[in-house]
């Protein structure tokens, strides 16, 4: 960790690469702690396959956007920075969208508008703003990967509950007996809200128990 701090240089006063990486996974989990990126969280967690494809897309876009923004951070004008962020993000989202349509056509149809909507995912623009536009490429990269893993874990937890209860399957494989009465509500939008709320309550309860002083 000390190595990372020196490598980042004297101007870099933010957290180190290692801290950024760890923070993204649990302490600053984008879904459960920051409540960012709610649109894909609610919309594509009906099953594990779309949820993981979405995570892959977000990982690619976030890594590319963070690296590029970090590279040009010295040239950014404060009043034009959001424009540059959006331009960068939109480019990579379009690339992801085209790749899915070319190589994973069924998945691309299933995800529908939610792939282009990564452009307006606050998670990505907030990482550009908070980390990439202020810190070195190395830290920005660690941050992007850490946040994406956190995002993926959160999506996986919600999608697992919804797919298992709603369809009796996990990643398309049957895990519950065929006699299981499928909870249709779980694959519909209300199931997303209910699952997210209950899991978030569980995470808060866990965090409170571990750090009683936080109260």
């Amino acid at each position: 960790m000390t190595e990372a701090a020196t490598a980042a240089g004297p101007v870099d006063s933010g957290p180190t690469a290692g801290e950024r990486f760890i923070n993204g996974i649990l302490p600053e989990n984008p879904i459960y702690r920051q409540l960012l990126g709610m649109c894909p969280t609610l919309a594509v967690t009906g099953g594990m396959q779309p949820a993981m494809t979405m995570t892959g897309g977000v990982l690619f876009v976030l890594v590319c956007a963070n690296v590029i923004v970090s590279l040009i951070r010295g040239l950014l004008k404060p009043h034009l920075r959001i424009l540059v962020f959006t331009l960068t993000i939109a480019t990579f989202v379009t690339i992801v969208d085209r790749f899915l349509a070319a190589y994973m056509y069924q998945m691309s149809k299933q995800l529908g508008p939610y792939v282009p909507l990564i452009i307006v995912n606050c998670l990505i623009i907030s990482r550009c703003e908070v980390c990439a536009s202020k810190q070195s490429v190395r830290v920005a990269l660690a941050d992007a990967v850490g946040q994406s893993i956190g995002f993926g874990l959160a999506l996986a937890s919600i999608a697992s509950v919804r797919e298992i209860l709603g369809s009796g399957t996990w990643f398309g494989m049957r895990v519950l007996p065929a006699a299981w009465p499928e909870w249709v509500i779980m694959v519909l939008p209300p199931g997303a809200f209910i699952t997210l709320g209950l899991l978030m309550g569980l995470v808060n309860w866990y965090v409170d128990r571990r750090q009683p002083s936080r109260r």
């Binding site: 009465p181 909870w183 249709v184 509500i185 779980m186 519909l188 209300p190």
Partner: peptide
């Protein structure tokens, strides 16, 4: 409401 949406057939 929960079970109505959950088990529309039942």
């Amino acid at each position: 409401a929960f079970v109505l949406v959950c088990f529309p057939v039942a």
